[in-house]
């Protein structure tokens, strides 16, 4: 075997690492561009976005699925955000290093790792059957909220952590109480980080299907939901059934649905990056 000089072997290795990076990133970009290329016509088909589906979903639009997805996102964030931030504040600002804290941390790690379909089973067992909420928006939202909780806690906690400890000491040393210190010093400076986390979890919620399969979704509803006890259509599930269960559906309809879903996800990602850049520029310390 030829012994390469260290310089040359560095060059070759860097090239390999670069190629690996390309290989890691390009498929993702490819997926996004295929969906955009094949689904972009939806922008010129206003009907598709605003009409109810008809003819066994072969015609009409995906309006109820868009509404359903937005509803689930809004209610889920509304429920899980305050609890998640509360838990993050507890862990970062109050918790002592004891058994309970270790248990909480372990629980969060494991909640984050529980497969989404198992959340679906949990939601079916507790919300749909035990609490008799039925297959409904509220059952789905509660399931999603439990599922998003660890994500919100983790991102909020690292946002709280990024606020220098010295600010807390300075405020406390002036006789300001712990809670007021959190409320007026820590939280305002942690908001950008928390916001970025929330927006990325919105992107995730928009794409969730498995936890909603038995808790909230309907194959087809002829009307928009009237209350939180109704079933809903959502974009990712609609995409799944049109792609796998309806054999003679037009491919463009499937891709148009995928495009809509991807647009929500991409928009959230761009908002997150804009917030991050904006606040990094205007950072006060």
């Amino acid at each position: 075997m030829i012994k390469l000089s260290p310089r040359l072997s560095q060059k070759i290795s860097y090239l390999l690492l670069f190629l690996a990076t390309v290989l890691a990133i390009v498929p993702g970009l490819l997926i996004i561009s295929i969906i955009i290329a094949k689904g972009k016509d939806v922008f010129f088909a206003w009907d598709f976005l605003t009409l109810m589906p008809i003819n066994g979903m072969l015609d009409g639009g995906i309006f109820p699925a868009i509404i359903g997805t937005l509803l689930l996102i809004i209610i889920t964030i509304f429920l899980s955000l305050p609890i998640g931030i509360g838990a993050a504040i507890y862990l970062n600002e109050y918790a002592k290093d004891n058994l309970l804290t270790r248990m909480i941390k372990l629980s969060i790690v494991n909640l984050a790792g529980v497969p989404s379909i198992v959340y679906g089973l949990f939601g079916l067992g507790i919300f749909v059957m035990y609490l008799k909420l039925g297959v409904s928006i509220i059952a789905g939202v509660l399931t999603l909220s439990v599922m998003e909780l660890p994500v919100i806690i983790t991102t909020s906690r690292s946002a709280l952590k990024s606020v220098p400890y010295l600010f807390r000491e300075a405020s406390l040393s002036l006789g300001v109480s712990r809670w007021d210190t959190i409320k007026y010093i820590v939280l305002p400076n942690a908001i950008p980080g928390i916001l970025t986390g929330v927006i990325l979890s919105i992107a995730r919620i928009a794409g969730e299907t498995a936890p909603l399969l038995f808790t909230a979704v309907a194959f087809y509803t002829p009307y928009l939901p009237h209350s939180i006890y109704d079933q809903v259509m959502i974009l990712p599930y609609h995409l799944y059934i049109t792609a796998t269960q309806i054999p003679n559906i037009g491919k463009d309809r499937i891709f148009a649905t995928a495009f809509m879903l991807l647009m929500i996800v991409l928009t959230m990602n761009f908002i997150a990056i804009i917030i991050r850049i904006y606040f990094r520029k205007n950072r006060k310390w």
Binding site: G207, L239, K251, I254, F255, L261, L266, N269
Partner: peptide
């Protein structure tokens, strides 16, 4: 690159499934 990786993390799995089905 970090932004792109983060973006990839949020692509819904049904979309990945769909692309898999047709590629």
């Amino acid at each position: 690159l970090k932004f792109l990786v983060e973006l990839m993390a949020t692509i819904p799995s049904v979309v990945i499934g769909l692309i898999g089905m047709c590629t």
